[in-house]
Computed example of a mutant assay.
Amino acid sequence: MTDAPTPRVRLEASGVSVKPDGAARPVLADVSIAFRAGELHALVGPNGAGKSTLFGVLAGDITPDAGTVTLDGAPLRGIRPRDLARQRAVLLQQNAVSFPFTVEQVVRMGRAPWARTPLEDDDDAAVAAALEVTDIVALAHRGLPSLSGGERARAALARVLAQRTDVLLLDEPTAALDLRHQEDVLRIARGRAREGAAVALVVHDLNAALGYADRVTLLDGGRVVASGAPVEVLTADAVAAVYRQPVDVFPHPGSGVPLVAPRR
């Protein structure tokens, strides 16, 4: 029997450290992590663990003080912004829009990297598909300022999906959403991974990571504590040690998927 081939690494950080001026210690210290095609890779950890800083480094928005980041083997810092936008899409926690654009206009912004290329012909189909999958077709002609926080979050995700890249960086995409739409977003992220995309997901909900991720990296104090299969990383002892909160981890009675519950 032949072993399945190891999925191709798309985005990789090696020995990355970040220490802001005046900081007593690094925000990230010698972090190495790889995101592979066909995998949903969740980044988890307590507040201040370094998740957002690592996300910024991976997106190319923060230059590390040490270490390297590569996209398909090429140094991230050497890729022109327009080319980078054609290779990876980024969803930030905050998506402030000052002007009264409609939802459809915001989603269409995701197509900007493909302007004046043959793929520009796909703009209408890409926008329509993104509106549909995020359940905001009915909001397409609404002004963004008139929407709730959750509706704005789905519009921001639709913009990223319309970009149609196969490396996705999603920073807490479920934070402002109700239960149904949280699950929808997680299913969308997992679906993109099943289609072959490399998906990096920052998430606070450990049960979401256990239920949807193929791989989990647990951060604490700017360092990688563990990385691997969710059930191997998010053990009761590991979670209790990192979050300073005793927990129980047990199988769901129906699905068997592990659940994390704080001891109260």
Rank of each mutant, 00 (worst) to 15 (best):
D214P: 06
T102H: 08
R25G: 11
A236M: 08
V202H: 01
R192V: 05
P145V: 06
E232N: 13
G110E: 00
R190M: 12
V257R: 15
V199Q: 02
D65F: 03
G22D: 10
L186M: 14
A241D: 14
G73M: 13
L157K: 06
I79H: 03
A155T: 14
P7G: 06
I62R: 06
L76D: 03
R244L: 10
A128D: 11
L139R: 00
T165M: 06
D184F: 05
A197R: 00
V203R: 00
E120T: 09
V69W: 02
T235I: 08
S14P: 06
T134G: 07
V44N: 01
T53C: 09
V133D: 00
R77S: 14
A198V: 04
A4W: 06
A156W: 01
V16T: 05
P253C: 12
P251R: 10
E12F: 03
V199N: 02
H204W: 10
A208K: 05
D65W: 07
L259E: 07
E195M: 12
G221E: 03
L91Q: 03
A209V: 06
R263T: 09
P251N: 10
D61P: 04
V44F: 01
S227N: 04
L119H: 14
P253H: 10
V27H: 00
A23I: 14
A126H: 05
R25T: 13
Q182M: 09
L161S: 02
L144H: 00
A89L: 09
V160L: 09
A208V: 03
T102L: 11
L168K: 01
V242D: 08
E12I: 06
K51C: 07
P81C: 14
G254D: 11
L40N: 01
V249W: 02
P5G: 07
T70M: 10
G15D: 15
V137T: 15
R152W: 03
A85H: 04
L119I: 09
D214C: 12
G149Q: 09
V133M: 09
L259I: 15
P230K: 04
